[in-house]
Design a protein around this nucleic acid. Structure first.
Lengths: 310, 310
DNA sequence: CCGTATTGTTTAGATTATCTAAACAAGAAC
DNA sequence: GTTCTTGTTTAGATAATCTAAACAATACGG
């Protein structure tokens, strides 16, 4: 018998594992309609009823139970395959996971310093927004933000970042800014993190800091990723309250400018977490030391200079 | 890590198993270009090189070997799943496989007689053109044609079929046929079987039989399946040399007519093969007896009547 | 040594599988 | 009895997958 379509098998496996079409659909990232159609296609292909539809519930038929048990082994094995490869690769080097924006705009840029220092060391940097499980080899080191670090056994504060209003020089054009509050008349890009991170400073707070009129709705543009907001600002779409650690290269390159260097601190620190076993890997301790070192430098760079408005 | 696309995994597994892109492509029924792109996509997704391209050869890298071993288990298991279901279903009843046309046009029609006789018996009829392996449960009974039966341990001749020119009454329209040879002026549908079956009678042979002029190329339409040719004739597309066993319903329904009942025999018999264990299944012996019985009747029906031209 | 054949890759765009949206059905919960 | 939730079906939109064509590199045969 010819193999049924793989997506149909996958849909059925998810239904068998999840118990309902709706939860299976959520897990697969598709609509229940898609799952329904795929399972129906599988049944047509095999010539057997796998699910009994009971009103708005579904149950595996006897055939479905037999088939699901076998299919599940196959998909478990496939999923396991990816883990096996991942683990094999991790064993050969250091793995750091960090928030995506931190990867894109900070550690992913600094890592070349590390490489110059230790050219023989393998380090893989992975953008990952949820906390990895260090103990089962998902990551050796983790950079995260705020209290999320507490889910790890070992962690230390890295740096507290500050934000500053920045924009593309093209946005200013011929406009002349007479006072900090004038910035608020431009398109403003907002950053809104997931609820388990304390929100970063918003434009309303900055407006209050500079004593400007604070409108209820300053802008309708929201970004989940700080790096995306920064990129949008670079592209001239508005002002962003950019984190100092993340816009260093842009300031140096002139793709972003800071008309008024009036900064606000993030409410919490970035943290480095690590798996104890990682320190015993080749270059593990050195990597740990290096990250802490560049973080100290970043603390100094991010904070406002002495005598500046805070 | 998120699962890679299933088709990409499947392509890579095929390459690992087959050794070349080209043979993997053939097995998957796609072009080598498709396999190449899928493997490349998998490598991008996993962030690792799985194949080393060496001129016009490919070799698994060390990562590729590790990954292939794991993936192969998964796909083997998925393939096995289909077999497990099939076997489980076969165990609950009698399985007959037959040539597709025989399923569509003969045994698939006669089976209702069986069901009336033995309503409690489960029989599954599967169209399958290559010979099943009886011993490992692929089939309990098998109807095949000619010497192919000899690959089975137990088999007996069923019936020899005859063909007769038949067409839709709509094809004749207002045309009046004056002699059998006049049929040859109509569109003629040819039937051409795979080389391991002795070819059925062709129009050229029939022409010779009725003493008509035999043109080199009578028609450009060829069908691999007798049932398809018959269906084309029913749809008015031409005359077919239809097998008597397969056009009985059409003749009774008037969707096919036989202007001149001049028949030619097929060069070989149909055979029933069976697995000894099948006779020990519930209704196994009865089924065997029933098939032989209706075959004897078919022999009588298919042969020309006494006194007819042969 | 040269020409041909074979295997593989890449890109553009065609095709098909897969998906979503919308409308509907049926039962569960309040 | 009404609202909500789960599932199905159909039509058509979307994206994955494919083929075709052009090209590259090696292997083979004369």
């Amino acid at each position: 018998m010819t193999m049924p379509p793989l997506h149909a098998l996958q849909a059925f496996e998810a239904v068998g594992r999840c118990g309902t079409m709706t939860t299976a659909a959520k897990e697969l990232g598709v609509t229940p309609s898609a799952v329904s159609q795929q399972v129906r296609k599988l049944e047509d292909c095999l010539g057997v009823t796998l699910l009994e539809r009971i009103g708005r519930r579904v149950e595996l038929t006897s055939w479905g139970v037999i088939f699901y048990k076998e299919i599940a082994k196959g998909f478990t094995q496939l999923s396991h395959s990816v883990d096996v490869l991942e683990r094999a690769r991790n064993q050969t080097g250091i793995v750091l996971t960090a928030l995506s924006s931190v990867v894109n705009k900070w550690i992913g840029r600094k890592i070349f310093e590390w490489q110059a220092l230790y050219p023989d060391a393998n380090v893989r940097i992975i953008g990952k927004d949820d906390e990895p499980k260090m103990a089962n080899g998902q990551s050796d080191f983790r950079i995260t933000y705020g209290k999320r670090a507490e889910v790890h056994t070992h962690f230390a504060a890295l740096y507290t970042d500050w934000v500053v209003p920045a924009c593309s020089p093209r946005l200013l054009g011929m406009h002349k800014l007479n006072a900090p509050g004038d910035i608020l008349t431009f398109p403003l890009l907002n950053i809104e993190w997931e609820p388990h991170y304390r929100r970063p400073p918003q434009w309303s707070e900055w407006a209050e800091l500079v004593g400007a009129a604070c409108k209820d709705k300053l802008s309708g543009l929201f970004f989940a990723l700080s790096s995306s907001a920064i990129d949008a600002a670079v592209n001239g779409h508005g002002f962003v309250l950019g984190q100092m650690s993340m816009i260093e290269d842009e300031l140096n390159a002139g793709t972003l400018v800071v008309p008024y260097d009036i900064r606000l601190p993030l409410p919490e620190s970035y943290y480095l977490a690590w798996d104890r076993a990682a320190l015993e890997k080749p270059y593990g301790r050195e990597f740990h030391t290096w990250v802490m070192s560049i973080a100290r430098k970043q603390s100094a760079l991010s904070a406002p200079k002495s005598g500046s408005i805070t």
